[in-house]
């Protein structure tokens, strides 16, 4: 039972980790808590769904998975949708506010507003009922007493690949360097001929894509609902805070810890109280170690 809970926790944790990386990068580079962040997951997930609906399914199921090869195209559509939303949001809302010297609190409220707009647009377009990319039911395989579904293993692998790609982007490319420089010190970065606006746009794109990936993977293993982003928001921020703001490895470990803790909580708490675990972790983190596990 415990092994099952831990494995389930790691699998949900992988999705939380992807989103938490986006949150932590946003906090470090954009310098405000983007409470609309989780809507990238919703928009990305539903963007992929729109592609699946337009194509009429995901194609014949591949091997042990529930979906066909078209899912890769759908994922690209989801990433594009969230990327577009990120750029439009920055261009229409956040850049004008930055130019006017708006404080972090104004930006936070603006992000709340944007989140409501995005969520309700999704609700309007797709309706309130849960959606799936594929209605196929997958039978779990027993691996050493633990039930695992092939889709979930794939999700874990994709999350790992995305993480590797992100580390490469941040460490090995010019734009990654620019993003890290702006996170350290925007004024100094500008003095070194780095365009902060370009770095900010890149951050929006990267974090939007991470959110969309998290949303699509969540839709693949759980289900899509218009309020899924809103429900993910607290676990995402908890993971980012727990890991330490600005730390990518911290966000990954934070995400996995939150996922496992949430799942293990059912050993001592009724299942219905599972949702308060991220909140308790966040509270404990603020009280005991405000800078997080890996914060500086």
């Amino acid at each position: 039972m415990i092994a099952q809970l831990v494995v389930d926790g790691l699998l949900t944790g992988a999705v939380i980790a992807l989103g938490a990386i986006g949150v932590t990068l946003g906090l470090a580079i954009l310098r405000f808590a983007n409470f609309g962040y989780a809507e990238f997951a919703t928009v990305g997930g539903y963007g992929a769904l729109a592609a699946v609906l337009a194509y009429g399914g995901t194609g014949a199921p591949l091997g042990p998975f529930t979906f066909g090869g078209f899912m890769a195209v759908a994922l690209a559509a989801g990433l594009a949708a969230a990327g577009l939303m990120a750029l439009i949001g920055d261009w229409a809302v956040f850049r004008p506010l930055r130019r006017r010297g708006a404080g972090p609190l104004v930006l936070i409220f603006a992000s709340f507003g944007l989140a409501l707009v995005a969520r309700n647009l999704v609700l309007l377009a797709f309706g309130p009922q849960p959606e799936y990319y594929s209605r196929e039911i997958q039978i779990a395989v027993l691996l050493g007493g633990v039930r695992v579904m092939p889709d979930q293993v794939l999700v874990l692998a994709v999350a790992g690949l995305a993480l590797a790609a992100l580390v490469w982007l941040l460490r090995r490319t010019r734009i990654g360097l620019a993003m890290r420089a702006v996170a350290e010190n925007p004024a100094l970065a500008q003095a070194c001929a780095i365009d902060p606006e370009a770095a900010i746009r890149a951050t929006w794109l990267v974090t939007g894509a991470l959110g969309a990936l998290a949303g699509t993977l969540y839709g693949l293993t759980v289900q899509l609902r218009p309020e899924m982003g809103a429900n993910l928001l607290l676990p995402l921020f908890t993971a980012a805070v727990l890991g330490g703001v600005g730390s990518v490895p911290g966000a990954v470990i934070g995400g996995l810890l939150v996922g496992v803790a949430e799942n293990l909580s059912v050993l001592v708490l009724p299942t219905s109280y599972k949702a308060i675990i991220p909140f308790l972790i966040m509270l404990a983190c603020f009280l005991l170690r405000p800078k997080g596990l890996f914060g500086r």
């Binding site: 289900q223 899924m228 299942t271 219905s272």
Partner: peptide
């Protein structure tokens, strides 16, 4: 086992 309405997943 009791369950609460309107959750995305009931795996636990």
């Amino acid at each position: 086992v009791p369950y609460n309405e309107n959750q995305p997943s009931y795996r636990t």
